[in-house]
């Protein structure tokens, strides 16, 4: 078990060594985002911005115009929403080389409650032209996706979480931007999931297997650009779709896949996610159960399609 945000700290160390032009910014959350590791090794390329996310995003944009690749850390709520207009108008509009790797996504933030959780960030970020959206499922995928993002021109949002989550991949994992990953083959239903719901989707497939239902489990780590071909190939076979994400059912992975399928392959889609509600305080596990982000809910949704 390891948090995806720890992948940020470790990826930055590797990036710092590989690229001289990497600059890392944080807004008084370097310990939480693990950018502190980079700050300690490369203090001359680390910019502490204090609690001022709007300034941080535009600063990064300005630094990027000078030939640098900027990585910005904060919590998702502040990076993507407090500083949204800076991200939209200055970073994305000019397609500047600024990466957003904020942590504490979703409701698994836990005890801090609704003000520090996010249920709508994927919907917001993926609607902005030029922005790319990646939601890693475990520590290794996070680390490798962040390393890879240095080679992707323009802004990328990589959504990271607070709690330690189980491993799915290993140390030699290679991230392929924009390509779905089939983790289990099946012919009855396609379960598309992202982030920490990938592991839970795999668990759901075991529940379904016991009942004689073969689920195909697919990790959609890149929500934008969406791997349309890969998704359609699976759906052409199963004709039944469940989506699972730690995000509102409005506008996130479920929204993106529904948009695609309604145009290219109309079929029934069940979206597992947070039902247009804010989060609240509690342990991460309590909240995941309370909001129905469980293997049982995914399995139940799959069965309802049969």
């Amino acid at each position: 078990m390891k948090a995806t945000r720890e992948g940020y700290g470790d990826a930055l160390l590797e990036l710092g060594e590989k690229y001289e032009n990497i600059v890392v910014l944080d807004a008084d959350l370097a310990k939480s985002t693990y950018s502190i590791k980079f700050a300690q090794r490369y203090p001359e390329r680390f910019i502490e911005c204090g609690i001022a996310e709007q300034n941080m995003m535009d600063l990064a944009a300005g630094i990027a115009t000078c030939g640098k690749i900027c990585y910005t850390g904060s919590f998702v709520i502040f990076a993507c929403q407090r500083a949204l207009e800076q991200v939209r108008n200055t970073i994305c509009y000019s397609n500047l080389n600024v990466k957003l790797c904020p942590t504490h996504a979703g409701i698994s933030v836990g005890e801090d409650g609704a003000s520090h959780q996010t249920v709508e960030d994927i919907a917001i970020m993926r609607a902005i032209p030029n922005m790319k959206v990646i939601v890693p499922a475990d520590y290794y995928q996070a680390r490798e996706a962040i390393k890879e993002s240095a080679e992707i021109e323009g802004p990328v949002f990589i959504r990271l979480g607070r709690p330690a989550v189980p491993f799915i991949y290993g140390d030699n994992y290679r991230f392929q931007f924009g390509k779905i990953e089939k983790l289990r083959e099946g012919s009855d239903v396609s379960i598309f999931s992202t982030g920490i719901m990938v592991k839970k989707s795999l668990e759901a497939s075991f529940i379904l297997e016991k009942e004689g239902i073969e689920a195909e489990v697919i990790n959609v780590h890149t929500i934008k650009p969406l791997d349309e071909e890969g998704i359609l190939e699976s759906v052409a076979k199963t004709k039944r779709v469940v989506t699972a994400e730690e995000h509102s059912i409005i506008g996130g992975l479920g929204g993106a896949i529904s948009e695609l399928l309604s145009e290219k392959f109309p079929c029934k889609v069940k979206r597992v996610g947070i039902e247009d509600k804010f989060g609240c305080s509690g342990s991460a596990n309590e909240l995941l159960i309370h909001y129905g982000l469980t293997p049982e809910k995914i399995a139940f949704s799959a069965k309802s399609l049969l």
Binding site: V23, I47, Q54, N55, M57, D58, L59, A60, A61, G62, I63, A64, T65, C66, K68, E85, Q86, N89, T90, Y93, S94
Partner: peptide
């Protein structure tokens, strides 16, 4: 030097250029 229009943004971006 930077796309601007939304007030306040260019000032921060200029500061980023100075820092760079």
């Amino acid at each position: 030097e930077i796309s601007a229009g939304s007030l306040g943004h260019g000032f921060s971006a200029a500061c980023g250029m100075a820092l760079a």
